[in-house]
Amino acid sequence: MTSDTGHVPAEVLADAAEGLLAAAEQSAVDEHLSHCTDCRQVAVDLRDIPTLLAAAPSPRMPDDVAMRIDAALQAEPPLSAPTPREAITTPARARRTRRMPVWIGAAAAAVLGVTGAVLGLRALAAPESSTSSISGAALEADRAAEAPDTTLAAPPDSRDYTADTLDERVQALVRTGDADGSTAGEGREAAPGTLPGSGTSGEPAAPGQDESSLGTLGTPAGLAACIEALTGRTGVTPLAVDVATYEGQPAAILVLPDPTDDAYLDVRVVGAACSASGDDLIVATRVPRP
């Protein structure tokens, strides 16, 4: 019962206070306490711990955190479609129209229809010079696959991501990767530093103009350091990485598994300075898996 010092260890006294000891053990403790003032004092101090803990002032949620959480919840679609008009749309469309008023969606689609045709032609003429993706397999599938049901998605080879097209582009990137079946799959963990494409396509990211404009991000080690800076974790395997531009700036679009919800993708857009010493984050968002 007693430790080497001849006293009852504090954890045994704490268990005794909660009634967790067997009868024989409890009576041995009681007997010891009856003649040991030191252990009695420890027992008293232990009883005061809950009071001390409760005396610490309770923090209130800071306004910026409350606003951020309200905004994140507002971006969520309602659980069931409350109006007949929304009820007859497809789930994917319902999600999009909620975030974007219908007239903006239509206007954007019209604009993208035009630029998309132009970029598509350019991509056909020079497929290697437009976008290079570290996820080589995903990109190949990306180029090959059609995405007929996403009117807002720019053509896969268009260089520039924008706030309006990010969700659809990311979904197209992942969908085509899944269809190909060779990209890093549903949150599968790989050894730290292993990137999709490096083991599956047999073709490491070739240094090109896009990578060089993004510095170390174009290398697997640089990318792994960036992801660790973003997530605080090692060994997070991106589902897809597209080295392109965002709103005209050189950027890498990183598509990571969402650790809290398999139905979503954790999307981070980072600039060239993303490394172990800073994440250079441009945009962070969560996108429903296609």
């Binding site: 954890e11 704490a14 268990d15 967790l20 101090d45 232990l46 001390l52 005396a55 309770s58």
Partner: peptide, 29 residues
């Protein structure tokens, strides 16, 4: 109960100095 007991035992040497002036406000809280 067991986790609380073990936790309190570990906190004891770290918080003992505070219990010289436990506040009545804590009890009320």
């Amino acid at each position: 109960k067991s986790r609380c007991a073990r936790g309190r035992a570990k906190l004891l040497p770290l918080l003992r100095h505070l219990r010289n002036h436990p506040t009545s406000a804590g009890v009320a809280s």
